[in-house]
Write a protein that binds this DNA or RNA. Structure first.
Length: 1016
RNA sequence: GCGUGGUUAGCUCAUUGGUAGAGCGCUAGGCUCAGGACCUAGAAGUAGUGGGUUCAACUCCCGCACCACGCUCCA
């Protein structure tokens, strides 16, 4: 056993930590608290991936480090175990998802424990455990019981919702509808992303380019009754409170973009003519989700200052007004266009956006600022889901409207005068400049007067500019700025679209106003006239919260039915005492192929009679996000069956001090969790407004770098250089010929670096492709952590994952890198242990002596570097520092025990098994007796401290530059002053020789660093 | 198309505007029957590219190229 054998020591220490509950976290410790959280995994059937241990190792290192620094660290782990794969497996095999899930959890738990993480396993949670989802359901009921008071800016109990008198007057049903329309959890008939393949609807966020995020199945849109969560009510606070957290700027930006706040105005354009039905009915609560219907078209604009430039309007093809306003003559064209749009997937709608399409409805609206009739079109570049689903088009000042107007020859009216700087970048300005110069007489007035001579030398564009400019020059001379301005006002079609801010023109009484001021005034005017109002719009949509699946949390909701079995619309929530509502057992999990949830098959479960009334249970289930929205709260009190967590514990541990996970959750999970947290906060259940104080995203780990050469198919010698190839990782195409090329995978020893690319060793003129790819089964480059642990041990895997590079970076896996850190751990082992001994014995060279000066300095320097690097989460450089110290100590024939003990403590958060073993060999704790785990573990040893006085050296090497070029190095006492340093540098033989015959103009002295002599 | 981050030794990365470094890998020698491991020594750099600021630029500013990630008709 004297050689380093992770297979023996790692399981032994894991058992030790388990049996002694070394990492159990007391809730009542006097030490300062620290909550270090990992994003818990979805336990898939494929087992742990090397990406998981990356973040988990980083947090484990910090947790272990902080414990040694005297903090009471909460570091838990659990399972996000509801979700599609287990259910898909059930459909295929008939195995209950619970069985599959428990099996997968067992695998994940084994794999994670095998890596020696210091979790408090007494706090393990599982989102599929009824004891857990009881409280997921409870939180849903809290949301159901909450409305958002926009005046107060916070959620309040539904009992406090004021009911308007006119609603009250309409009776109980109206009041119920009104209240239900205000709840944070509400039902609506909404167009959903129905995925026939998966048998479920998906959230917008789960649909990418018209396909499901998981599996890439096609998605179609259809209306369905759904549960939604009113996250949009919290948009403002979700945005503002980003200022309260220490997250990467990139993630904050992604959340801001996702919320997509824009300020502007809603403006009503009255419909012109008599093609509008005069009756106007109250929209129902469900219709309230859709654009307003009335005798006007309501639009949202961020540029109300351009209202005078609105020359047409566009409705989304799905806009409810379309059918009502379309004139008989246009109906056929409109219907055809609508059908065409409906056929297109979202992907096609955006990809084919190169040329704008649309159809005139035949109807007109009146511009509210000047009562001018403008045509109403439909076009798919207007989205029904954003704003009001309708726009006013200002082609002069909006790129999309500009393109559309050009396509359909609609009028363009400039209402904003661009600044001079912009004019100077235009083609018009360029023509004007050439016209004044007129080197080649092309713009000569006499020749212009004679049409025959100009046609072939001037383009139509030039001709238009020139003819207008020559008239203008009577008034403005050769002032291009003035003339361009005039041209813009009268011949705007000669310009590109200008979408920025400027001064108002062609806007009646508002002419001359700057954009910002114009916006203020026109918005006030619109409000006064009852034609519009200030409006803040969000890209964020309400959160579609139901899934037509089996393996998810059932909604704790009953729908009342009448004697005929038809729903009355009344909804009754379960009481807390009735929770958890568990899933019924099913015979089969096969989706029906229709959007009816599988739970509907469990009739006994669905049909409920209470108090003489009949009810049906809600058969939708919650999405996977639900359980992960609040798991960090449950860790604080995982077995509590009276509350989701004890308030005192919530106060003690929140917020999470550090949250580490993949950037793929940058928007969805983190936004949803923040939303729930804020709702809970408003209802007084959690102590602060934000759940996660600090967030760090680990980067992705790619497969090993692959080297690929290309050659023409069936021509073994017809190589093609990588520069001439379009290669996406799978298919290579010859740029010139368009021919598909054959790929040849190369080994590292077949290639070499030449310049900034790799070439074939045998044929150095042939460049090859070198890149690393995402790990995937299809590519066959997946690394299994089990294999790495089997071959090198958990400590090597941990250390390597941290040594690969900065935590946040994307980086390729390298087997030789793993071997490198494994050899490093072997060297550390051999620093202390006699490999030839039968039992664990220290080498004779390990002695109780004072370290020499250099060793002592290096030890303290290493403590400083490792400590600073840990604070900065720069694990890779910390490891590098320990390697340097190890290499130094290896060279010593006498190794001071104290130096080794320090190294072992520094290394212990990274490679805890090896460190524990060596710590024990080196004598363990001097006094003995620890609060937790006894004296036999180093887990609570004080972290080494360094003495700044010991970091200093007696002498330093100073660079001497002449005119900024290094010309010599002088060794001087470390504490020399500037004057002394200058004198020493100037008197250095080498430097004196260089200065012969030159005048010293200036000497720059930076004590401790360098001397720069500037000569003439 | 827009935004963010990046480009330093073969690889992965360090480098408060002041002498370009580390680890791994590589090469040679030692040890070994040999290989591996180990020990010793060594080579390896126009800091992507072009400008600017400065006594001095890898570092600050601007342009370009390439890579990664995010957003993408959001009115």
């Amino acid at each position: 056993m004297p050689t380093y054998n992770p297979k023996v020591i790692e399981p032994r220490w894991q058992r030790f930590w388990d049996e002694h509950k070394t990492f159990r976290t007391p809730d009542d410790s006097p030490k300062p608290k620290l909550y270090i959280l990992d994003m818990f995994p979805y336990p898939s059937g494929a087992g742990l991936h090397v990406g998981h241990p990356e973040g988990y190792t980083a947090t484990d290192i910090l947790a272990r480090y902080r414990r040694m620094k005297g903090w009471n660290v909460l570091h838990p782990m659990g399972w996000d175990a509801f979700g599609l794969p287990a259910e898909q497996y059930a459909i295929q095999t008939g195995t209950h998802p619970r069985v599959t899930t428990q099996k997968n959890i067992a695998t994940f738990r084994r794999q994670i424990k095998m890596l020696g993480f210091s979790y408090d396993w007494d706090r393990e949670v599982d989102t599929t455990d009824p004891g857990y989802f009881k409280w997921t359901q409870w939180i849903f009921l809290e949301l159901y019981d909450t409305w958002f008071d926009h005046e107060a800016g916070r959620g309040r109990p539904i009992a406090e919702l004021p009911i308007p008198a006119d609603v009250q007057a309409q009776g109980a049903a109206a009041v119920r509808a009104y209240v239900d329309g205000k709840r944070l959890a509400y039902q609506a008939l909404v167009p959903v992303n129905w995925c026939p393949e998966l048998g479920t609807v998906l959230a917008n966020e789960e649909v990418i380019d018209g396909k499901s995020e998981r599996g890439g199945h096609p998605v179609v849109r259809m209306p369905l009754r759904q549960w939604l969560l009113r996250i949009t009510d919290y948009a403002e606070r979700l945005l503002a409170d980003l200022d309260l957290v220490q997250w990467p700027d990139a993630i904050k930006k992604m959340q801001r973009d996702w919320i997509g706040r824009s300020e502007g105005a809603e403006v009503d354009f009255p419909l012109a003519g008599d093609n509008v039905p005069s009756h106007d009915r109250q929209p129902t609560a469900i219709e309230d989700q859709r654009p307003k219907i009335g005798n006007h078209i309501r639009v949202f604009t961020t540029r109300p200052d351009t209202l005078f430039g609105a020359t047409y309007m566009v409705l989304a093809p799905e806009h409810p007004l379309v059918d009502r306003i379309t004139t008989p003559g246009q109906r056929q064209a409109v219907e055809a266009y609508k059908a065409e749009t409906a056929r297109k997937s979202d992907l096609e709608r955006t990809e084919l956006a190169k040329t704008k399409t649309g159809v005139f409805t035949g109807a007109y609206a009146l511009n509210p600022v000047n009562d001018e009739p403008i045509p109403i079109w439909i076009a798919d570049y207007v989205l029904v889901s954003y704003g009001t689903g309708a726009i006013m088009a200002v082609p002069a000042h909006d790129e999309r409207d500009f393109e559309f107007a050009q396509e359909f020859r609609l009028p363009i009216r400039p209402v904003v005068r661009p600044p001079q700087a912009w004019f100077r970048t235009t083609k018009v300005y360029n023509v004007l400049a050439r016209m004044w110069e007129d080197k080649d007489q092309r713009f000569d007035a006499d020749r212009l007067a004679n049409p025959g001579s100009t046609v072939e030398t001037l383009s139509n564009f030039e001709l238009a500019v020139v003819s207008f400019a020559s008239r203008m020059s009577e008034r403005f001379g050769r002032n291009s700025d003035k003339i361009a301005e005039q041209l813009y006002e009268h011949r705007v079609e000669l310009f590109e679209c200008f979408a920025d801010e400027g001064a108002a023109i062609n806007s009646g009484p508002f002419d001359g106003l700057a954009t910002a001021e114009f916006k203020r005034q026109i918005t006030a005017w619109l409000a006064e006239q009852g034609r519009g109002q200030r409006k803040v719009n969000y890209k964020l949509r309400d959160w579609l919260f139901s899934r037509q699946r089996y393996w998810g949390e059932p909604f704790p909701i009953l729908h009342e039915v009448d004697a005929a079995g038809q729903p009355t619309g009344a909804v009754v929530p379960l009481t807390v005492a009735e929770l958890p509502l568990t899933l019924p057992e099913l015979e089969d999990y096969q989706p029906s192929g229709k959007p009816e949830p599988p739970l509907g098959k469990a009739r006994d479960w669905v049909e409920v009679t209470r108090g003489g009334k009949r009810y049906l249970r809600e058969t939708n289930t919650m999405p996977q996000w639900a359980g992960s929205c609040w798991y960090y709260l449950r860790y604080l009190d995982p077995r509590n069956d009276q509350a989701f967590a004890d308030p005192a514990r919530l106060r003690r541990w929140l917020p999470v001090d550090l949250y580490v996970g993949g950037a793929e959750h940058a928007v969805l999970h983190l936004l949803y969790a923040r939303f729930w947290h804020k709702a809970l906060y408003d209802r007084g259940h959690v102590p602060g407004p934000e759940p996660f104080l600090r967030l760090v995203n680990q980067g992705m780990i790619l497969g090993e770098t692959e080297y690929t050469a290309f050659r023409k198919a069936n021509q073994p010698l017809a190589w093609v250089s990588a520069g001439e190839v379009d290669f996406d990782g799978d298919v290579a195409v010859h740029k010139k010929s368009g021919a598909k090329l054959e790929l040849v995978k190369l080994n590292e020893d077949q290639i070499e670096k030449k310049g900034d690319s790799f070439v074939l060793k045998d044929q150095p003129s042939l460049r090859i492709d070198a890149r690393a790819y995402k790990m995937s089964k299809a590519r066959g480059n997946v690394i299994n952590p089990d294999d790495v642990v089997e071959d090198y041990g958990a400590d090597s895997l941990r250390l390597y994952e941290m040594f690969m590079g900065p935590l946040e970076a994307t980086k390729p896996w390298s087997l030789s890198g793993v071997e490198g850190v494994y050899r490093f751990l072997n060297r550390v082992w051999r620093l202390a242990v006699d490999e030839r001994a039968e039992r664990l014995t220290l080498l004779d060279s390990v002695q109780d002596v004072e370290p020499d000066k250099e060793t002592l300095r290096l030890v303290h320097r290493t403590i400083q570097r490792v400590t600073d690097d840990l604070e900065a989460m720069a694990f890779n450089t910390a490891i590098s520092a320990m390697m340097e110290l190890t290499n130094h100590l290896t060279r010593q024939t006498v190794r001071p025990r104290s130096a080794l003990r320090t190294l072992v403590l520094l290394l212990s958060p990274f490679a805890p098994h090896l460190a524990e073993e060596l710590w024990r060999a080196l004598g363990g704790h001097a006094q003995g007796g620890h609060a937790q785990g006894g004296q036999e573990t180093l887990a609570y040893e004080p972290w080494p401290a360094y003495d700044p006085a010991l970091l200093k050296t007696d002498t330093v090497d100073i660079a001497v530059q002449i005119n900024g070029k290094l010309r010599g190095v002088v060794t001087v006492p470390a504490d020399i002053d500037a004057a002394g340093l200058e004198k020493l540098a100037l008197s250095d033989d080498k430097i004196r020789g260089q200065l012969v015959g030159k005048t010293v103009k200036k000497v720059i002295v930076v004590p401790g660093k360098l001397v720069n002599i500037v000569v003439g």
